[in-house]
């Protein structure tokens, strides 16, 4: 391990954050390098002073009591109420589809005209063609659902 790497690891080594192998390598280097030993010694002093100063300034810090009434007084959120808009939308969609597809609704949509000439002929208006059609036969009538 070179000096640059060892000096980068000084903080981790001094606070015990190095793994076993890395620690062995650092100690091995420090045994043979006087400059790094000096730097480690200075770093140790600085870190010790820093810790003591921070603790001296804040050791007596005890906060005021927590207002637990405020913490526990919150109303429980009714989570199911969040689903209401989604459910309403689904309901509207289902009603819409039902209205489109049900026999009652097709009856409402298909306007049955009686031909003015024949009197009893039934004309069904188809959406696709846009023209009135005469149904092919009375049986198997396939009324097309459409708008006029």
């Amino acid at each position: 391990m070179n000096c640059k790497k060892v000096r980068q690891l000084a903080e981790s080594y001094l606070l015990g954050d190095l793994g076993f192998l890395a620690k062995e390598k650092v100690e091995d280097h420090l045994r043979n390098c006087l400059d790094c030993r000096k730097i480690y010694s200075q770093e140790r002093v600085f870190l010790s002073l820093l810790k003591k100063s921070l603790n001296a300034n804040h050791q007596a810090d005890r906060s005021l009591p927590i207002n637990w009434g405020l913490v526990f007084s919150r109303k429980k959120s009714r989570r199911y109420l969040r689903l209401v808009p989604s459910l309403a939308l689904i309901f509207v969609l289902l009603v819409g589809i039902f209205l489109l597809l049900s026999p009652v609704s097709t009856g409402l949509i298909n306007k049955i005209y009686t031909s003015p000439e024949e009197g009893s002929a039934v004309t069904i208006v188809s959406r696709d063609a846009g023209y009135p059609h005469n149904p092919p036969s009375e049986e198997g009538l396939n009324y097309r659902i459409g708008f006029y």
Partner: peptide
């Protein structure tokens, strides 16, 4: 106490630190 000390140093203000502590509890 640990949370309060942390807040005191970061916020440099004891009353702000206490308010922060109350909010954190909630």
């Amino acid at each position: 106490d640990s949370l309060y000390r942390t807040a005191c140093v970061i916020l440099e203000n004891e009353s702000d630190a206490y308010d922060a502590l109350q909010d954190v509890a909630l």
